[in-house]
Design a protein around this nucleic acid. Sequence first.
DNA 1: CCTGATAATGATATTTATTATCAATAGTAG
DNA 2: CTACTATTGATAATAAATATCATTATCAGG
Lengths: 143, 143
Amino acid sequence: MDRNDAKGIFRIYIKEKGLRNTWQREVILDAFLSAEKHITAEKLFAAIREKNPEVGYATVHRNLSLLCECGLADEIKIGRQQTRYEPKFGQKHHDHLICLKCGRFIEVNDHKLEKLQDKLAEANGFLPMRHKLEIYGLCRECK
Amino acid sequence: MDRNDAKGIFRIYIKEKGLRNTWQREVILDAFLSAEKHITAEKLFAAIREKNPEVGYATVHRNLSLLCECGLADEIKIGRQQTRYEPKFGQKHHDHLICLKCGRFIEVNDHKLEKLQDKLAEANGFLPMRHKLEIYGLCRECK
DNA sequence: CCTGATAATGATATTTATTATCAATAGTAG
DNA sequence: CTACTATTGATAATAAATATCATTATCAGG
């Protein structure tokens, strides 16, 4: 899935929900697609403001929520930091290794692990829908 | 590890850090050891207030932090709900199945899963120290 | 192209959990 | 017992996310 697919998904989602397309939405979507991974609402807002000073903070928040709803973004909350938003287009689900020293995120994926998680859930009469695995420790540089 | 061991650990931790023992600390520790699992600071505060109306809210918070520091409790944050505190004495590490409908927590553990997680971390040059796995879905009653 | 219904915006107020402040109190070592 | 200072409790402050609301802009239907 590339950038244009993502835009299409967003526009279709907007339309199907009876919402309206605005230039602010386009600007926010564009900025999000170009932004660093795991960006906060505040940083995204700051980046948008550089080129588009008329876009409001609340609007950025509102549209990040929309992006999550339509499946293009995911919320990540670590400790008491502010929420980070992770792009979900063009990549598979993954888990996170989080360095306790430098705060770096490393994205990892393991098929066996995913399977095992599903089995564990099912063994407990549970229907798994999504999951979050965060492994905390020290990264190569910090250990 | 039983209730008295937990108390001992707390008292020793307090002493070694050059802190002081107060009756409020004892009351909070006692209440925490008797409380339901995954309790919030607010609920614990309410429970304590029934018998000890002179204990302050801030004090409960402060001592919950201490309990986490000395390893007797763990913070759990789900979504934008308030922080829950989980007792860590007298039980092994476990992961959580969280029902998206009724909010129920189910505690599970799987040795193979733990091993696999460590291997995944190490394969990425990462030194794993602790982890958090939360599987979201529908529990037996809600699905 | 108009136009009316109403979704969206932006500035700001509100909410909510947690943390900081600070004067008064109370452990604790010597 | 005493001095030092950690702790407490009441409350203020903080910070992120959400709600409010008057104004503006979108867009389907004519």
